[in-house]
């Protein structure tokens, strides 16, 4: 459904994207992961014919994204990264305006979306909070039941309840065999919704694969606070432990874990533990550790 090959875009002498090549099948929910400024939005804006590629090709449903942008947009729903709309229109007016520009939509479905995301459509766009602005653009992207949804960080600013509703909406789209291209820098969001992912860094696609492939790059941190001082070497070399640090208070240890934490938990149980906290590192951390620290050149890995 979406195909790019050698897609390159530069902003004068500044980097945009270089040789991005990816394929998204019909009915697939494809996650497009990358840290801030990695080139996700540039790729998406080229797909939406808002930017003209310097080199390479981008096609949606077999049509060229630049040459045949109008028929492509009939098939597409789009959520931009930074929604900007007429501040003096109400949410309801914006939705009806875009409905008209799309040649009309099912009003019943539109009302249903408004209700599901709990949007007050009588307020002006400028009066909306960030989350409510996001709801308006989400509804306008979904309301005409497009074959392809191109979503650039669509849940930014949404509260957990609405994020959950968004996940349901994406699931329904997937169940109906429609395609979603979802850009995000939140690993867990991509894990929840996507079947395949592409990872972009400094404008280059460094990895494309199934969602399970994420696990080998996913690393999380555990901080354990003991009653007494425990030497870091007690955890060195344990299965799944990538890195161990002793914290300045002398009683805490921070571990970077990749894979199972079973060995760490068992080792910790040998001592008196006050607390144990685990958190997911940011995608930026992952990229820094996996793709910069070891100095490995980022070549695209396509994993089946």
């Amino acid at each position: 459904m979406i195909e790019t090959a050698g897609l390159t875009k530069r902003y004068g002498d500044k980097r945009g994207i270089t040789d991005v090549a990816l394929t998204v099948e019909e009915g697939e929910v494809f996650g497009f992961l990358g840290p801030n400024g990695s080139g996700k939005t540039t790729t998406i804006r080229v797909l939406m014919a808002l930017l003209r590629a310097d080199r390479g090709s981008a096609r949606i449903a077999g049509m060229d994204c630049w040459q045949q942008s109008v028929p492509i947009k009939r098939l597409t729903g789009y959520v931009p990264g930074e929604p900007s709309l007429d501040p003096n229109l109400t949410g309801g007016q914006i939705l009806e305006y875009f409905a008209h520009l799309r040649g009309g939509v099912d009003q019943g479905y539109l009302k249903q979306l408004v209700k599901r995301l709990d949007l007050d459509t009588s307020r002006k766009f400028r009066q909306y909070s960030t989350g409510n602005k996001r709801k308006v653009v989400l509804i306008q992207a979904f309301m005409h039941r497009p074959r392809v949804l191109i979503l650039d960080e669509p849940t930014n600013g949404l509260d957990p309840l609405n994020q959950q509703e968004f996940d349901h909406m994406v699931k329904e789209v997937r169940d109906e065999g429609r395609t979603v291209f979802l850009s995000s820098h939140v690993l867990s969001e991509v894990e929840r919704n996507c079947t395949r992912v592409g990872i972009i860094r400094t404008g280059e696609l460094v990895r494309v694969g199934g969602i399970h492939e994420l696990k080998d790059i996913k690393r999380y941190e555990i901080t354990i606070v003991f009653t007494d001082s425990v030497p870091p070497k007690a955890f060195d070399g344990l299965e799944g432990v990538a890195h161990v640090d002793a914290l300045p208070d002398g009683r805490s240890i921070r571990l970077a874990i990749q894979g199972s934490a079973d060995a760490v938990i068992k080792a910790a149980a040998q001592h008196r533990v006050i607390s144990l906290t685990s958190h997911e590192p940011s995608l930026e951390d992952i990229f820094l550790r996996y793709y910069q620290a070891d100095g490995r050149a980022p070549e695209t890995e396509h994993v089946a």
């Binding site: 939406m48 808002l50 942008s69 789009y78 931009p80 799309r102 306008q140």
Partner: peptide
């Protein structure tokens, strides 16, 4: 410049 044409141009309007 302020991005208000972005969504408009994402509709099937040449």
């Amino acid at each position: 410049e302020e991005g208000r044409l972005e969504l408009l141009l994402a509709t099937p309007q040449p």
